[in-house]
Design a protein around this nucleic acid. Structure first.
Lengths: 240, 240
DNA sequence: CCATGGCAAGAGCACTGCTCTCGTTCTTGG
DNA sequence: CCAAGAACGAGAGCAGTGCTCTTGCCATGG
């Protein structure tokens, strides 16, 4: 309750951070499956049982790392969004996508932790649903600004959306509370998922012996994604 | 060398198959990280060390399961391809994609094994590169037949392809040895990767609380993918 | 000042992947 | 046909894991 943090609380936070830091180091070195609580404790000069005062189980530690990873990739996307303000919507979309890809290639094991097989249980813990949506929200922000600038085409899809899918989009639009026509959402959500298909295939090695010029290929694919999401070229005025 | 199979060889093949079967059962129950050699051996009534006569390590067992999984999803795609012969290219494309999705939803852990984080080493073993390409080849076959029927548009991409990406497509086209214009390949490869983005997000739970009408959503997204790959509607004559 | 409660340490349990050895059984070349 | 040798199953054992329980220390709050 108090704002004053006792020495004990400060120490606890420091140790918690040190554990996560060391765990992240081992994650980057060996991958999630080889992350060992005992090894983390050993590296930190403590005994393994002491570590259970900070994380009740190995899965809880992993969950904490998952939340951090979602936050990191979300922050990268948001930073790209902010840095690209006032430019062409398609270019902005590409910048956000490039930021996600760059983060993923720089942190492959952390990426695998969140967008690969979910390691701990089978369904994602509740703590992750917030941070997990940050990249999606950044993409939505691009579309939203494009829409107010008249650079968002919401084409009638070639297969008309079913009633159920329509209801989905409407509900999601209400949940999001953004100035975006619900009809724009299905394509946007699809593009969001497809972006991670591109990134995952590259990070997980499916492009080996298939795609060599990966930067160029990604740029090309992501431009296609922007079009599929309804974004069109056109300058967006700064501010409004 | 001999075609005659000794009793020992037959027994060996049977035990090998039984091990893989039991391992696949445990995989479906618990996931790859909880698959235990000892548990497999126990269930089969043998001692754990005996199992090492058949698979030199746990990772080798997993690799065998990976190859089988690639073969299974590839077979599902090829079967959908064969069954949809002579229909509209876009519909055919969708059928192949639907088959992949259906297999993935029916075998989530095996799907995670091949398209989630690569569990064993970090780069895929050599045995997997062949089976891994079967789905991609099925998609290429759809595009190829659409092309000969004049239903494949190879639009100049909005960002012109770089020289390196062009060279990539040319090399890949030569490797594939198909009647497909190299310019069609980048979009096709991108659509291939993006398809697995859609499937992965659904299997791994990223669509929870986002997409509810998943069948309809998938059909919609996959139609967009077909367009992005250059496929256009139009009847394809049977045979030629 | 003293009792409570957070903390590190250690022992220990049940489990894992993997190795090595020891008989046994099947295969095959002379 | 039989002996050499390969393949095989069983068992013990090693080092490692996640996790629990107990013990004792020491800072903190009443």
């Amino acid at each position: 309750m108090s704002v004053i943090r006792t020495a004990r609380e400060r120490a606890r936070d420091e140790v918690t951070a040190a554990i996560k830091e060391e765990a992240r180091r081992q994650l980057a070195d060996e991958g999630a499956s080889r992350l060992s609580l005992r090894a983390v404790a050993r590296e930190l000069g403590m005994v393994s049982s002491a570590l259970y005062r900070y994380f009740p189980s190995r899965d809880e530690l992993l969950t904490a790392l998952i939340v951090d990873a979602y936050d990191a990739v979300g922050a990268a996307a948001e930073e790209a969004l902010a840095r690209s303000g006032g430019t062409d919507p398609v270019e902005r979309w590409s910048e956000v996508c490039r930021a996600v890809r760059r983060w993923a290639l720089g942190h492959p094991h952390e990426y695998a932790l969140i967008y690969g097989s979910p390691v701990p249980g089978y369904s994602a813990p509740l703590d992750t649903i917030g941070p997990a949506s940050r990249v999606g929200l950044a993409l939505i922000a691009v579309a939203e600004e494009a829409d107010t600038a008249g650079a968002l085409a919401v084409p009638p899809p070639d297969v008309p959306l079913s009633e159920a899918a329509h209801a989905d989009a409407w509900r999601l639009s209400k949940d999001l509370d953004r100035n975006l026509p619900p009809r724009a959402l299905p394509s946007l959500v699809a593009a969001w998922a497809q972006l991670f298909g591109l990134v995952s295939f590259e990070v997980f090695g499916q492009f080996n012996n298939v795609v060599e010029a990966r930067d160029d290929f990604f740029d090309h694919a992501v431009t296609g994604l922007a079009h599929q999401a309804g974004l069109r070229r056109g300058r967006v005025l700064h501010g409004e």
